[in-house]
Each structure stands twice: as C-alpha cells, then as structure tokens.
C-alpha cells in the first residue's frame, strides 16, 4: 500500500506580467487502488497541479509539500519522480523526431526498472498492450507522437502507463478530443492498469463523460487553484446536472 499526499500546495509561474500564483493551497491524499476524479472549469489550475506533481520546471512550488510514502517528492528531479512510481499522462504530448516509439518505450522501461527488459518477453508485452488499445503494430516504428492524431496520442500515453507500471498515475484530460469508441478503449486501459497494479489514479477532467467508464471513489471539485468541494461519485452526477456555476464567483 502506497500513499501520495499533497499538502497545502501553492504553485506560481513566471509570466510577462510577473509571478502569478495559480495553486492556492491544494490538499489531496491518494492511496493505492483509489481513483480520484479532479473536476474543474478551464483555467482552474488542473494542469498546473498535474505538472507540479511531475516536476515541470516552469512551475514553482512556493509553499506546501508532496510526499510519496513519506518521501519528499519536491526534492526529486523529474526523472527521479518517474522512477519513484509517478506517471503523468499529458494533455498535450510533444513530438520527438527521429526517436521511434519502440526505442523510446524500451529506453523508458530500462530507466524505470534499472535494467534492460528481456527482449522476447518485452516485445510480446508491448504487442499485447498495443492490441488491447487497438493500435496498429506499425505504430512502434513511427517517431514519438510525430504525426499522431489526437486519439493516437492519448492511446500512446495509456500504452506507456500500462507498460511502465507506475504506482500513481495523473491523467490530464486524457478524455478530451476522443470519440466514444476511443474513450471506451482508453478507459478500459486505465481500468486494466488499475486492477493489475493496484494503481492509484488522479483523473483530471473537465467533463463527466469519462466517469461512465471509469468509476471514481472520490470526486474533488477544483476551482481557482484549490479544492472547493469533495465527495463520492454522486458529486459528479450533481456537477453534470448543475455545472460549475455555483462554484464560480459571479
């Protein structure tokens, strides 16, 4: 059983107009096997939270802490966090020319586990995961995210999550831009990883749609850089009916 704790997290970014505070005291605790949905309007700071957990250099933590089984995550570099078991499925994955998906996956797996995977079983494992996500085998010869459609990028993120087997995954709007079929396929991937690895999930979303396929244990409503309300799955139903209006100051 692992535990990820976010305590009183304050984060700011440098802008042309000076430093801007975005997260204003976020408290969240996620245990292995739990699924937490973080829902909030655009611009409320959801991606900032995701990037701050992963350690993106643009975001400065000005107060608070992030602990993974009591270890100070904020002192870890980006790659150390990933090796400690944190994973971020990005909202906008970047293209990397000249680096094939297969090379990338193998390099990442080697970095995470500390040794090169046995080639035979690795190739089989990759092929099975790609099959499950309805990805064409030729996909692995393409360059990372280069020329991928929106849906392909999201599948590729979930593929990495399945293969790298993190302890906690932050999914930043993995549902946006997907049609219903793709949404189902991607959701099944998340559910598989959740069951197989007792994965703790922080599911960031703007819409309730994905919650039909991935059942959250907890729902947090995120407004203006902090959690405005939290509850169980029923809170998502209320959000679907009422929207965010009552949380957003007029």
């Amino acid at each position: 059983m692992a535990i990820l704790q976010i305590k009183n997290l304050h984060v700011s970014v440098d802008t042309d107009q000076g430093t801007k505070g975005i997260l204003k005291g976020v408290d969240l605790t996620i245990r292995s096997g739990e699924i937490h949905a973080v829902m909030g309007p655009n611009g409320s700071g959801k991606s900032t939270l995701a990037y701050s957990i992963a350690g993106h250099p643009k975001y400065q933590v000005t107060d608070g802490e992030i602990l993974l089984d009591g270890e100070n995550v904020l002192e870890m570099s980006v790659d150390e966090r990933a090796r400690a078991g944190l994973f971020l499925a990005m909202q906008y994955p970047v293209e990397i020319p000249g680096v094939s998906v297969s090379n990338f996956l193998r390099t990442a797996k080697t970095a995470i586990t500390g040794e090169a995977p046995a080639l035979r079983t690795w190739i089989k494992e990759v092929r099975e995961s790609m099959d499950n996500l309805k990805m064409d085998p030729t996909f692995s010869e393409r360059n990372v995210n280069e020329g991928f459609s929106g849906g392909e990028k999201k599948r590729h993120e979930i593929l990495q999550m399945e293969l790298l087997k993190p302890r906690f995954a932050v999914l930043d709007e993995t549902d946006s831009g997907l049609d219903v079929d793709a949404l189902k396929i991607v959701s099944e991937g998340v559910n598989r990883a959740h069951t197989a690895n007792d994965l703790g999930v922080l599911l960031i979303t703007h819409y309730t749609r994905i919650l039909k396929y991935i059942k959250p244990d907890f729902v947090h409503v995120f407004v203006d850089g902090k959690v405005a309300e939290q509850g169980g799955a029923e809170l998502a139903d209320r959000l679907e009916a009422e929207g965010y209006d009552r949380y957003v100051k007029a």
Partner: peptide
C-alpha cells in the same frame, strides 16, 4: 533544445543526459 521534449522523456524516467542524447541523435541520425 526543446525543453518540452526533454521534460516528456524525463517524465518517463529517462535521465536528462540520456534524454538529450536521444533527442539530438534522433534529429541527426535521420
């Protein structure tokens, strides 16, 4: 260097030196 490319690779556990190497090599080996 594209910092976002480096961040993406590092977020998958790859060290910054290895990430740089991958990106530059890919660019030229092409």
């Amino acid at each position: 260097f594209d910092d976002e490319q480096l961040f993406y690779l590092q977020a998958r556990g790859i060290t910054v030196d290895e990430a740089r190497r991958l990106v530059v090599l890919g660019f030229l080996v092409d």
